[in-house]
Design a protein around this nucleic acid. Structure first.
Length: 855
DNA sequence: GCAAGGTC
């Protein structure tokens, strides 16, 4: 008997080949005695474009809308046509006893297989079987599941649900994008997913713009008794804030007037346990990598893909599952064995009892989706990039943590009665860090870790200090990739209606794990959203589209995340055989028809949008005028229009990368590089340098010094006249409020590196300041920073060296906070309890030092 | 010039 097996992707086909002992690889498939195994590359077939139905539809016109094809048709996707033809030939030109569909176990997997069969003209359903499992495809799982093949008709409903998903997205997207674009005179894309997400970003921008901060007050009282001190925070029922000023004043007066001590009225101690976090889904990993390293979702996906595909140390990344299947216990044991050897520290406290099927937080078939959670397969290669290692480390730690004991801690809550008001004190002592060992003990609960004396009810404490804190309410934060992914995954948090909240209780989100990163990028490329560091900000254009759609009652549902969830719910019922597909499609068609009619006649404000292009990245400093040099399509040029300095992206036939340009700007010389082509078509090598000829700065070749700096990534040594030390230039995202960046590559070789005066770490350069490479909590949480601009003066590299060496700079003209100018030199001093400060020493007499820059 | 969903 011969069988044809069709998988969704090459990696799965090769898992099958391994399990079935098929070794003979042909072009586009594996060939064995009993099996031929071939693979798709995701979707190989797509819906017709409008102009495939009718060439007249190539032009976008309002009059041709709504576009509602009588019958939807498919065509092969050009990019993967070769593979489609291979599969079609196998299906139609060879006789197999059975065709086994082994695409991923989910709705889209079903669509991928069915559309290939459809477009190949293969109709013999009797011979088609479905291979269905979400377990990791180790050989045993493949062989066992091959013995439990299902008739394909069991999955017809799933295929229909997938088909309606495709078709309804097409109807909404094609019609409303064309309509809004033609009516508003600029490209305005509209879609079920992208418009709902855009609306979330626009709403957040509006909330923040219209937010009015309110002042409120807290009270803290420091009690002191025989057993020690404790701080109580005022509360009444669940409230800890007082929003009324007279009330706050009255309370303060009462507290100050009160002579009697505080009395402990309750003391509760509980031992609590916190289980390890669940294994990573892609979205969780993207969130964590965005929070910790500032990686955009797309970057994390790309790195994870490389770890999976090239380095083969990570499982399939596009998964929304946070568990493994019960068939993966053996796999887990193998992986644990390999990783233990590579990083024994992380696995020293693994609890063998947790490495068993009784660990339902890890092994849970009921919670498996198309794929299982992200896990490591083996230690990462030494050759991997820094970013790859960072990301992989997150996965390994999460994996290790999953097999650790719970974190056990003792939580204490003390209530003290003072002046007839109640004050609470919370403490937390970690008894056994359990899985937190993997992350370094106690990082997570720093804020709460207050040590409380062993109080009992009735203990008295004299009042030592009464503190009133004035605070302001803050608006919800701007979205980052991380926060947006969270709300896309779990939109119910922002949905008011109880009924709809319930819809989200299942696993319904907006978009899918495979596309969420892409949706964010689409919004950016449409000019709806901009990145500003970690933040994602809706632009005026994005806000405008949402406003126009919301003017129209029918179309406005696209701007509500609820609607996308309703569609998902209905598709689910179709997949389960409970819903009517015809009614669903009729509903969507009616929606599109009505929305088109409504928007055709709506009084839309037509407004012209200049592309709000985010500024291109700064790649260096202009040698001619000191302003930023930015990348543009053809060159790296000075942002000052009046300055003509430019480094073209092609020099003598060779492409110049941003990295090369950065080096060139920093060191005035870079190379040597191979691959230039002379006017006589001869190849040659040369370094590039920046020279000043008659007051004109330009890039020229340098033929000296050939081959000398090759050990240094093609980077020349720094120009000795410019600096004796170097600072690592960091080009990743800024972190936190200080806007210092994460460290980039290793410190530049060949030059003395500057050291942090507090912890001896490496000095790294961020966007706004020079900081310490040990800024991460796990590296020592060093907060050292010197801002690049101090009192209106921009520091030079030489100033920085002088300051770090503890020496005084020469006097400069500086400005104080009132804008008054004065002349002073700067020096770094130890500031008590604060790390370091930069002081300026005014030139005038008797003015003393003035602290201008605390860390 | 359009959607969203796969995979590269």
């Amino acid at each position: 008997m011969t069988e044809l097996i069709l998988t969704e992707k090459f990696s799965v086909a090769s898992d099958f080949a391994k399990a079935l002992g098929v070794k003979n690889k042909k072009d586009g498939y594996f060939e064995g005695d009993a099996h031929v195994i071939t693979w798709a590359v995701g979707h190989l077939v797509e819906l017709f474009e409008p102009d495939d139905y009718d060439a007249g539809l190539k032009k976008w016109r309002v009059e041709t809308l709504p576009l509602i094809p009588e019958r939807f048709r498919y065509k092969p996707i050009t990019r993967t046509l070769q593979q489609f033809r291979t599969i079609k030939a196998l299906l139609t030109q060879r006789q197999f006893d059975r065709i086994i569909i082994a695409t991923d176990a989910g709705r889209e997997g079903e669509v991928i297989a069915r559309t290939i069969l459809l477009e190949s003209g293969f109709r013999d359903k009797e011979r088609i079987m479905r291979f269905w499992t979400s377990q990791a495809l180790v050989p045993k799982v493949v062989r066992d599941t091959m013995n439990q093949l299902k008739p394909i008709t069991d999955y017809d409903r799933l295929w229909r649900a997938g088909y309606y998903r495709q078709v309804s997205d097409w109807l909404v997207g094609m019609n409303l994008t064309r309509l809004m674009t033609v009516r508003l005179g600029d490209l305005f894309s509209v879609g079920r997913v992208q418009t709902a997400v855009l609306a979330m970003l626009v709403d957040r921008r509006n909330e923040r713009e219209h937010f009015i901060p309110e002042t409120y007050w807290n009270f803290k009282v420091l009690f002191s008794g025989d057993k020690g001190r404790w701080t109580g925070r005022w509360f009444k029922e669940k409230e800890t804030r007082i929003t009324d000023k007279p009330q706050a004043d009255a309370l303060l007066e009462r507290f100050q007037a009160e002579k009697a001590p505080g009395v402990v009225v309750s003391m509760k101690k509980e031992t609590k346990q916190e289980p390890p976090p669940l294994l990573f889904s892609l979205t969780d990993l993207q969130q964590e990598a965005n929070n910790r390293f500032g990686f955009p979702a797309k970057k994390t996906l790309a790195i994870a893909q490389a770890l999976y595909q090239d380095r083969k140390c990570l499982s399939y990344p596009r998964t929304d599952s946070k568990v493994l299947g019960t068939a993966s216990l053996g796999l887990v044991n193998t992986v644990l064995g390999k990783l233990e050897q590579a990083c024994p520290d992380l696995f020293a406290f693994v609890d063998p009892k947790r490495v068993s099927l009784s660990n339902r937080r890890v092994f849970n078939d009921a919670k498996l989706t198309d794929h299982h959670a992200l896990i490591p397969f083996k230690p990462i290669s030494e050759a991997a990039s820094r970013d790859e290692k960072l990301l992989f480390d997150l996965v390994v730690r999460r994996f290790a943590a999953a097999f650790h004991p719970d974190c056990r801690f003792e939580s204490t809550r003390v209530v003290t009665l003072f002046a007839k008001e109640t004050f609470q004190t919370r403490g937390k002592v970690i008894l056994d860090p359990g899985w937190q060992r993997v992350y370094g003990t106690g990082i997570r609960d720093k804020a709460e870790a207050e040590i409380i004396p062993p109080l009992v009810e009735g203990d008295e404490g004299a009042v030592e200090k009464i503190e009133r804190e004035e605070k302001q309410t803050s608006p919800p934060p701007d979205y980052s990739d991380s926060l947006l992914l969270k709300d896309m995954t779990n939109p119910g948090r922002y949905v008011a209606e109880e009924e709809i909240k319930r819809l989200y209780r299942g696993d319904i989100g907006i978009g899918t794990q495979s596309t969420r990163a892409q949706i964010i990028e689409t919004l950016i490329s449409r000019g709806y959203v901009q990145r500003a560091g970690k933040r994602l900000l809706a632009t005026d254009k994005g806000g405008y589209l949402v406003t126009q759609l919301r003017k129209c009652p029918i179309s406005s549902v696209l701007t509500s995340p609820e609607e996308t969830a309703r569609w998902e719910m209905q598709l689910n019922t179709i997949a389960l055989g409970e819903g009517s597909d015809i009614r669903f499609l009729d509903h969507i068609k009616a929606f599109v028809t009505n929305a088109v009619a409504e928007l055709k006649s709506a009084g839309l404000n037509v407004k012209l949008f200049k592309a709000e292009q985010p500024q291109a990245a700064v790649i260096g400093i202009c040698p001619a005028c000191g302003k930023a040099v930015r990348e543009n399509p053809k060159a790296f040029s000075c942002e000052d229009r009046g300055c003509e300095f430019v480094i073209f992206k092609r020099i003598a036939g060779k492409s110049i990368s941003a990295k090369m340009a950065t080096n060139l700007l920093q060191y005035r010389k870079s190379g040597p590089f191979k691959g230039f082509i002379s006017k006589k078509k001869k190849r040659f090598s040369a370094s590039l340098k920046i020279v000043n000829e008659n007051g004109h700065w330009k890039v020229t070749f340098d033929f000296n010094n050939q081959g000398k700096a090759s050990s240094n990534n093609g980077q020349a040594s720094p120009d000795p006249r410019r600096s004796i030390s170097t600072v690592e230039r960091v080009r990743s995202e800024p972190r936190g409020p200080e806007s210092l960046s994460a460290p980039g590559s290793e410190p530049t070789q060949g030059a003395e590196t500057m050291r942090c005066p507090l912890c001896n770490g490496t000095i790294i350069e961020g966007n706004r300041g020079f900081g310490c490479s040990n800024w991460r909590p796990e590296h020592g949480d060093c907060r050292f920073v010197i801002w690049k601009e101090i009192a209106g003066k921009t520091l030079t590299l030489q100033n920085l060296e002088t300051l770090i060496a503890g020496k005084k700079t020469r006097p400069y003209v500086l400005k104080n906070s009132n804008g008054d100018k004065f002349k002073a030199s700067m020096k770094m001093v130890k500031a008590p309890g604060q790390g370091v400060a930069i002081e300026v020493e005014p030139q005038g007499e008797g003015q003393g030092f003035k602290v201008l820059c605390l860390r």
